[in-house]
């Protein structure tokens, strides 16, 4: 019987393993999150599901009123507002420089700029924790060489956010500059030639040919970086534990703390579902805009 099922549907042998895993560990969990978010599930409930009570939308109401959650949300907005433009400008700048010539030097430089992208966030967070250290860190030592005062990199509420942004930008420049570089190298040579015949200067070529034609790449980098900030987790967890006083907390870290530190699974599930809805909305908007963008070209 089982045998006939597969011989009538040979494709099943191939797609079934992946389908089962994706259904059980990716699609089904979203429904579980929604279901659990309507209950008061906690550690006792985890051991004995009979103890779990249905509480309606109470968790969502609490979430909206929760100062900690609101702070994590607005921290994320801060990361997006300053982090996205920084990543776009920095990686575009590097890409323009790397596009300047073609020889072994440029290939080697590309490798150097790319290197941080392959490293793991955890190790990088530990390394930057040292570099940012008030007393023993390299950054404050370099500042002292110029007679500049020490910067409280990770202990001041706003500077700590900026420090995390700088580190994340450092790590993502490599990946994003490749996107820009690919786009730059895709610009047809006759565009430049035509501009030269018209007597365009270098900066004019940059401003009127390169930048407008990079629209799609810019959009891609900006939107993936934006979605990335909503998933920010390892760096604040390892470097600041979300502090000082919650000022670097992220939505993902908030969910983690509620779920796995305090065992408030119902509440954490509500946070998870909200995060899912935010990312779903952002992805769908990105899709829509991308289609429109392609339509114009």
């Amino acid at each position: 019987m089982k045998f006939r099922f597969f011989s009538n549907r040979p494709y099943m042998i191939f797609i079934l393993p992946a389908l089962i895993i994706l259904s059980v560990f990716s699609i089904f969990p979203i429904f579980v999150a929604l279901g659990v978010s309507l209950t008061d599930m906690n550690l006792i409930g985890l051991l004995n599901w009979n103890q779990v009570q249905f509480v309606g939308f109470e968790n969502y109401m609490d979430l909206l009123a929760d100062k900690e959650f609101r702070q994590a949300f607005f921290n994320t907005i801060f990361y997006v507002v300053f982090g996205v433009p920084l990543v776009v400008v920095a990686s575009l700048g590097v890409a323009l420089l790397l596009d300047y010539g073609k020889n072994k030097f440029f290939t080697a430089a590309r490798a150097l700029f790319y290197m941080p992208s392959v490293t793991t966030s955890v190790a990088i967070a530990v390394v930057f924790g040292y570099l940012y250290n008030n007393h023993y860190g390299l950054f404050n030592y370099v500042l002292s060489l110029f007679d500049l005062p020490k910067v409280p990199w990770l202990t001041h509420p706003i500077i700590a956010k900026i420090s995390l942004i700088l580190m994340a930008a450092w790590k993502s420049i490599g990946f994003n500059m490749i996107i820009f570089l690919a786009a730059l190298q895709g610009i047809p040579k006759d565009y430049y030639e035509a501009a030269e015949i018209d007597g365009a200067k270098k900066w004019q070529k940059l401003l009127y040919i390169k930048v407008p034609l990079l629209g799609f790449a810019t959009f891609f980098v900006a939107s993936t970086t934006l979605i990335g900030w909503f998933q920010f987790f390892e760096e604040p967890m390892i470097m600041t534990k979300g502090g000082p006083v919650g000022s670097t907390n992220s939505i993902a870290l908030f969910i983690y703390d509620k779920g796995f530190k305090l065992s408030e699974f119902g509440y954490a599930a509500a946070g998870s579902f909200v995060l899912f809805l935010i990312i779903l909305a952002l992805t769908l908007i990105q899709f829509k805009l991308r289609k429109k963008d392609n339509g114009y070209n």
């Binding site: 969990p29 998933q231 969910i255 796995f260 954490a268 998870s272 899912f276």
Partner: peptide, 19 residues
């Protein structure tokens, strides 16, 4: 299958743990 790309691990960590 493609839709699962829109579901980040950070949103499924709690339900996946329960599962």
């Amino acid at each position: 299958v493609l839709a699962t790309m829109m579901i980040p691990g950070q949103a499924t960590m709690i339900p996946n743990y329960l599962i």
